[in-house]
């Protein structure tokens, strides 16, 4: 097991494995996303309260979930970097940042597109939207810091520290924003009250969530391969390619 871990962690090996996995992952993603979209856009009935606008949920909710999941993955990478100085974790961490930022961005945009017909405005200072916005800033901070430091190994450690500090803070931020919101909330916001969600809506939602997870791994591998090649352009294994 440990040996496997070691082998998987070596850049050339990872580069090859990721290359082999990418077509399979792409196929899996396409199958899942097609099924999810079919279920979400065609098979599922309109909601009795929100009509068809709730269908935005099938991209919005998975994006929001992924925005948090990716951050957790980055924090785990950060810990691995600080403890074992593992090169692969550095690359995974920084390759995840733009993907996570994209998911966060998507969650925000689709959330406000859903909010316009439901709440009457594109933007409400709703607790979730606000903490999502702050999460986006955290992602951008990580990307900015990584770009600013020239030596990429040093940059990786800086970003690792920041990711860990951020991960400690994210629950606190979320909690404070929630608390702030209940305190200030005006009467305009009608909460999305949950009738027990129907199976025909839940299934596509889960399919979409799963497909987004596969997509994350896919995009991550793609990004990692490019990053690996860029960093190790002078090493021997790259020359052999």
């Amino acid at each position: 097991m440990f040996l496997w871990f070691h082998k998987f962690g070596s850049p050339p090996h990872f580069y090859r494995i990721a290359g082999k996995w990418i077509p399979w992952l792409s196929g899996l993603f396409l199958v899942l996303v097609t099924a999810g979209l079919f279920g979400g856009l065609i098979a599922a009935p309109p909601d009795y309260q929100q009509g068809d606008s709730y269908r935005i949920m099938f991209v919005h909710v998975p994006s929001a979930w992924m925005s948090m999941l990716v951050y957790v993955a980055m924090a785990v990478c950060g810990i691995i970097i600080m403890v074992w100085r593992m090169k692969l974790a550095e690359i995974v961490l920084i390759s995840s940042a733009p993907i996570g930022a994209s998911f966060t961005f998507l969650a925000l945009v689709t959330g406000s597109l859903w909010g316009k017909p439901m709440w009457g405005t594109y933007w409400v200072w709703d607790a979730r939207l606000t903490s999502e916005l702050i999460l986006l800033f955290l992602y951008l901070g990580i990307i900015g810091l990584h770009n600013a430091i020239e030596d990429k190994r040093v940059a990786a450690r800086a970003v690792a520290i920041l990711a860990i500090v951020g991960a400690v803070n994210v629950p606190i931020i979320h909690f404070s924003v929630e608390w702030w919101n209940t305190l200030h909330q005006g009467p305009t916001v009608t909460k999305f009250d949950k009738p027990s969600i129907y199976w025909s809506m839940l299934l596509p939602l889960l399919l979409m969530a799963l497909s987004f997870q596969v997509y994350y791994v896919l995009a991550l591998f793609q990004q990692c391969r490019a990053e690996l090649l860029r960093r190790e352009r002078n090493s021997k294994w790259v020359e052999e390619l």
Binding site: I134, F137, G141, G144, L145, A148, A158, V165, S176
Partner: peptide, 26 residues
């Protein structure tokens, strides 16, 4: 994190301000 950088100022604010949010709120 940013003291070694020449243009650390802007990045510093981007890093620190989101983390200040809970303090500001309370």
């Amino acid at each position: 994190l940013t003291v070694g950088l020449r243009k650390g100022g802007i990045i510093l604010s981007l890093l620190v301000l989101p983390l200040y949010v809970p303090v500001l709120i309370f």
